[in-house]
Amino acid sequence: MENHQTSLPMKIVVAVLFLFLLAPVLLVFPISFSGEQILSFPPESWSFRWYAALANNSQMMSAFTTSLGLALVVTVLSLAIGIPAAYAIVRLKVAGSQIWYNLFTAPLLLPTIVLGLAILIIFASTGLLGTFTGLVIGHLVVTLPYALRVLAVSLGNLELACEEAASSLGAKPLTVVRRVTLPMMAPGIVATAVLAFLVSFDEVVITMFLAGPRLTTLPVALFHHVESQADPLVASVSVLLVLLTLAIVLVVDRTLGLTRTFVK
């Protein structure tokens, strides 16, 4: 196979582009250790006061717990719904499978604010506003299209030979799915779980329509905090969220590998 060497000018261009994209994230780190009362760069003094303030902020900690629990529930439900749906569409070729696929992925074509307003109108008459169940359903509208796309592509790329071999040796359909198909889909399942978790955890627009004063998520709490105050507390929360995302990526990389998980 021919080995192509990247030229030095191209490496410089790529490095500059990466720096440009990561600059806002990198600036958050020193700001989070600022000892000032307001957001400023560069900080004139250094302190861990805003991390301590975050630990003592009951509203932020409660919102983080809600976001974490919500993202976990949404991730599990996205997999529980997405895996059978992808299998029915890709393998079983059920009647109208393309229509079902388009229906599941239709929310990707709509602006999030339109989805949020539509869900608000529907939930207003069902008593789901300001409830955990309502937030779960609202987030599923956003995460299911991503889950189905990733799972359908993962399943579609699998060779049928292994499943056919298991069937020819007497394995029942459910046994083939459990012992052959799902293990082969493991990278796609992990990619779906990570994507669904991060999308749900970071969702703010739909959540602002559905959350209430007694139940809110971390992104919404941060949004309201920035409206009234401009202190480095937001930067400290952002740093922790970046580290959380990085930890998830590292776990995936160490277990299955990023290339195998996210690259077709």
Rank of each mutant, 00 (worst) to 15 (best):
V153S: 13
T207S: 10
C162Y: 07
G116T: 08
S67E: 05
R178K: 14
E36V: 04
L244Q: 02
I31F: 00
G116A: 10
G134C: 07
P42F: 01
V226L: 15
L77K: 10
Y87F: 11
D231M: 07
T245P: 02
T259V: 15
M60L: 15
L250Q: 13
T245S: 11
I122D: 01
A85Y: 01
L27C: 13
A23V: 14
L174Q: 07
L128A: 00
V237G: 06
P24W: 11
G138E: 07
I12C: 04
P111Y: 13
D253V: 09
R214M: 06
S228T: 15
A63V: 01
H139Y: 12
P30S: 12
A55C: 12
I119A: 09
V180C: 10
L155Q: 01
A55R: 13
L258C: 10
P232S: 07
F104R: 02
D231G: 03
S7G: 15
A230P: 06
V226Y: 12
T112G: 11
T126K: 06
L160M: 14
W46T: 11
V242G: 01
M185N: 06
L198H: 01
L258A: 13
G130L: 00
I31Y: 05
G188W: 00
A71F: 04
T255K: 14
T131M: 04
Q59S: 14
R49H: 08
I99F: 13
L27N: 07
V237R: 05
T131Y: 01
S200Y: 10
R91T: 09
L140R: 04
L68K: 10
V199T: 13
S97M: 07
A106V: 14
E159S: 15
D202Y: 10
L70W: 04
L21C: 14
A147Y: 01
V28L: 14
L215R: 01
N102W: 03
L241R: 06
L129Q: 00
V177E: 05
S34Q: 04
R214D: 04
V28M: 13
K93A: 12
P232C: 04
P213C: 03
L19E: 12
L108T: 12
A23C: 15
S125V: 09
L198T: 05
R179A: 15
L243N: 03
P145K: 04
L27H: 09
I83S: 04
Y87H: 10
P232R: 02
V249A: 14
F262I: 04
T65E: 11
S78Q: 10
V94S: 09
L155S: 00
T245N: 08
R254K: 14
Y146N: 05
S67K: 07
V142S: 09
T217D: 05
L77N: 10
A235T: 06
Y51F: 12
S47D: 08
L54I: 07
D231L: 00
A191I: 03
P24M: 13
